[in-house]
């Protein structure tokens, strides 16, 4: 599959995850979000950026349980819970936010 963003084409797998993480930019993130019917707010970006930082450090996309705990630690308890994260990303915070962040599907999501 491919995604058209600003006249450039980027390759994705059949589920819409970027093939090449290095091609990611904010416009691509917005395009993926749009395809998922999501309006990117600051709260969305906060999670997406968190995921990208996590990947840079550990070379994995965290499982949702790990993401929730880590978000809670970094951004506060009101954000480190699944209700908040599922409201932002209804199809699963790890899965959907990782897709928008240009990361592979989290290990452990089958």
């Amino acid at each position: 599959m491919a995604l058209e963003v600003g006249g450039k084409t980027v390759e994705t797998d059949e589920e819409g995850y970027l093939e090449n993480r290095d091609e990611w930019n904010m416009d691509i993130a917005k395009a993926i979000a749009e395809a998922e019917n999501l309006d990117m707010t600051d709260n969305h970006w906060e999670v997406v950026n968190f995921l990208r930082e996590y990947y840079d450090e550990y070379q994995i996309a965290p499982a949702v349980r790990v993401l929730t705990k880590a978000i809670g630690k970094k951004l506060g308890k009101d954000k480190g819970n699944s209700k908040y994260l599922y409201e932002l990303f209804p199809y699963g915070p790890a899965k959907q936010a990782c897709k928008i962040a240009g990361l592979p599907k989290p290990t452990g999501c089958v």
Binding site: Y58, Q59, I60, P62, A63, V66, A70
Partner: peptide, 14 residues
């Protein structure tokens, strides 16, 4: 090849 050694540091999170 992918350097997966940083991932061992995430084990504590798991």
């Amino acid at each position: 090849m992918k350097n997966f050694s940083p991932t061992y540091k995430a084990l504590g999170d798991y």
